[in-house]
Write a protein that binds this DNA or RNA. Structure first.
Lengths: 251, 251
DNA sequence: GACGCTGGCATTGTTCAACAACTCGCACAA
DNA sequence: TTGTGCGAGTTGTTGAACAATGCCAGCGTC
């Protein structure tokens, strides 16, 4: 299991310890990974690291040294620790007491678990939305926007953005239920899903196949046919899960 | 540590001081809420505060002062902050930047949301358990144990423990699916549920009515009739949710 | 009297330096 | 080869200090 080549650099490697350490400096100030200006430093740091992990800037299994990262990001160890705790609850990093914080490494079992729970949560949310009062226009708009963004990015060949839009679409579908706790749970799961995809060598192969299904789902939602969207989403997730498990990210 | 005035802090605060502040001292040392000895201080603090919040030791809406609490618990502000972060992710406290952390206050909408998601998650987990391979004996044993504990506590008239066992039973039911992420999500939800119940004036009225349903569920599970347990659990949760919303905790 | 402003004050946010506690790799000895 | 102790390095925690923010009371104005 410890086949991870990155683990060897765990202790002290002045030159090669942290891959692309210097780049963090360029990421810190006013990075595109917008974090609210009013946010605290810990939240900003968490946002930066989240973006980094989700875009493949951090290798799964890699250890995040408090001292090195704190220096690179220009924050104190205490602030960095608060950010770590936030990311830990999101499932992006793993905290091992007295050992350190490691970028989460997802295995086949994790992927199965992830997709199984997604099916329960997302389909459950959509079912609730279908059973209750029609969702507000903004919620439907979010679905439409996510679909459009994904298709535009696909046209532009920006497959990583397609992946982002894809996650946004699923979040928007779940948000139709109008349940803040469902939203939070789905957000957590999708963060892990993105982490799993972040290491994919060919983003296009990962994201492109689902564009037609996304379009169908968005159209059903826009037409208010939520009940019909539920089985579509369920089949979608099952196929997607099989695909993800078949091509494990940590080949 | 012995510095427990807590009155000085409220010097300029004519409105509301910290209700029951002095009681913290009695709970801190070797409290029943056992936290693993190997755990870090931050985790121990989180465990103490969690137990306090769940047993009504902290009033919903109450502000948790870093300085006062840190002094009372004998830890530094930084450590306390880490514990706050943990509890915040569990939904037990709410962190408002530059204002402080407050014990979570659950409103009627929160209760509706909570129970709706419980239905999706718990029933979804049970359905999955029914569809897959039979759960391991330990998982079934956990259900049996939780049921027994609840009934014993009821006989003894210890209704707060009945509530705890009740939550454990629901967690055990969801755990039959064998999904770590489902377990984590359910644990989070149940923590909030316990928080909602913590302020109940009459624990018996809250917990006693569900003992028969618990027994039925446990028996179905022990006999391997998981599929039959699903609708039972669903009706259970709907009735329980109606009851909880009908008698809001912050009457 | 009601409203808006401007202070002071308490609390939170963050940093820093230091020490304690722990893990891990490595040399050494049986 | 195996076990053990040592030492370096990391994480855990503290305490103090300062900055930034929010709250509240007092004041003046309308």
């Amino acid at each position: 299991m410890s086949t991870a080549p990155t683990s060897t650099t765990g202790a002290t490697s002045p030159g090669r310890g942290l891959p692309g350490a210097g780049r963090w400096h360029g990421v810190v100030p006013g990075d595109g990974a917008a974090s609210a200006p009013g946010a605290t430093a810990a939240e900003q740091v968490a946002a930066v690291l989240r973006a980094l992990a989700l875009e493949g800037g951090l290798r799964p299994g890699e250890q995040l040294s408090e001292q090195a990262l704190g220096a690179a990001l220009g924050v104190s160890r205490n602030t960095l620790r608060e950010a770590f705790r936030t990311l830990g609850e999101e499932g992006l990093v793993e905290h091992q007491p007295h050992r350190g914080v490691f970028v989460r490494l997802l295995r086949a079992d994790d992927l199965r678990d992830l997709w199984a729970l997604r099916e329960v949560l997302e389909c459950g949310a959509l079912e609730r939305a279908a059973a209750g009062t029609p969702p507000p226009p903004e919620a439907v708009g979010a679905v439409r926007t996510a679909r459009r963004r994904g298709e535009e990015a696909a046209t532009a060949g920006d497959w990583r953005t397609v992946g982002t839009a894809n996650m946004a679409l699923h979040a928007a579908l779940a948000a139709l239920a109008g349940s803040p706790r469902t939203d939070a749970a789905v957000r957590r799961l999708l963060a892990e899903v993105r982490l799993a995809f972040s290491a994919a060598p060919d983003p296009r192969a990962v994201h492109e196949p689902w564009l037609p299904a996304n379009a169908l789902l968005a159209e059903l939602v826009e037409e208010g046919r939520l009940a019909e969207a539920v089985p579509v989403l369920r089949e979608y997730l099952r196929a997607s899960g099989r695909s993800a498990v078949a091509s494990p990210p940590t080949a």
